[in-house]
């Protein structure tokens, strides 16, 4: 477990400060559903943090708030000590799927952020080629998105984010829709990118294996309370073997945290049905 001193460390490049968010339902009884409840995370420069939690626990909501795509009800987001209230090019999201533009080629997708920034055609083409190369898709530079497989699409999404050169990459279950082999390859590629670019990465997933395989630190979210339950620092060297005894122990601990919630949720629904 992480001590509270670590959480308060001053070297954080990203500081999620007591963020809360509730959604109001448009139903007649107009209930509010608390999705995030005073969530705080500090991420150090160059750190690879994974956030794990079951579907619907608010991972995407948290990531969108960090990106500035949604606003929190309370709390704040600080990047390098500066408060952020809207999107900016220092935090780029890689979405689960479907976020590439089908009207553009691979190359044009990758240079999109640079075009918005007013970079000249020659320069941005050159940069885009470099990043398409980085994800080994040079041969598909002029293909349209529908011509790519799921894994290739996510590599384009990674290249598109890298081209903008953000400080922080926010990855929202980017490989959840892929088959196991492709996912393994992309895990290696992301780790390689992290090693070479030293980017700060916040990676959200519902997959415990993925979380422990990638993260320097795993943050476990609780769907019941909408808050962070526990954090696990993982100092094992990479590449990691999810089957190793050390990993099994960590995975077991994470699973326990999640199952506790699950049992609680089950009990709650049972009493509800009885009433």
């Amino acid at each position: 477990m992480i001590t509270s001193e670590y959480r308060q460390s001053a070297t954080a490049v990203l500081k999620v400060n007591e963020v809360s968010k509730a959604f109001q339902y448009a139903s007649p009884d107009s209930q509010t559903h608390v999705v995030l409840n005073r969530v705080s995370i500090d991420v150090k420069d160059g750190e690879f943090v994974t956030i794990v939690g079951p579907s619907g626990c608010g991972k995407s909501t948290l990531l969108n708030i960090i990106a500035g795509l949604e606003s929190p009800d309370s709390g704040s987001i600080l990047v390098k000590g500066e408060r952020k209230v809207s999107t900016s090019r220092d935090r780029i999201v890689i979405f689960q799927e479907g976020a590439l533009f089908p009207w553009l080629t691979v190359l044009e997708n990758v240079e999109f952020g640079l075009k918005l920034a007013g970079v000249s055609l020659d320069k941005r083409r050159q940069a885009a080629r470099h990043f398409v190369d980085t994800v080994q898709l040079s041969r598909f530079a002029n293909s349209y998105i529908y011509q790519l497989s799921g894994g290739m699409k996510q590599r384009v999404a990674i290249a598109r984010a890298l081209a903008i050169d953000p400080d922080i990459l926010l990855m929202d279950e980017p490989f959840a829709a892929l088959d196991v082999q492709t996912r393994d390859l992309l895990h290696n590629q992301v780790l390689h990118l992290h090693e070479t670019t030293k980017k700060t990465i916040l990676f959200v997933t519902h997959n415990i294996n993925e979380a422990v395989l990638l993260g320097d630190r795993v943050v476990v979210m609780s769907p019941r309370t909408g808050s962070i339950k526990k954090e696990f620092a993982i100092s094992l060297p990479r590449p990691r073997d999810v089957g190793s005894p050390e990993m099994t122990v960590i995975k077991r601990q994470i699973l326990n945290e999640l199952e506790e919630d699950f049992h609680f949720a089950r009990r709650e629904t049972r009493t509800e049905t009885i009433q």
Binding site: A67, T87, R91, I92, A99, L116, A117
Partner: peptide, 17 residues
């Protein structure tokens, strides 16, 4: 699809762009 608009806003697209 809202995802296109989100992705674009995230990359810095606003207003006329």
């Amino acid at each position: 699809p809202p995802i296109y608009l989100r992705a674009a806003r995230n990359m810095g697209a606003n207003g006329f762009a």
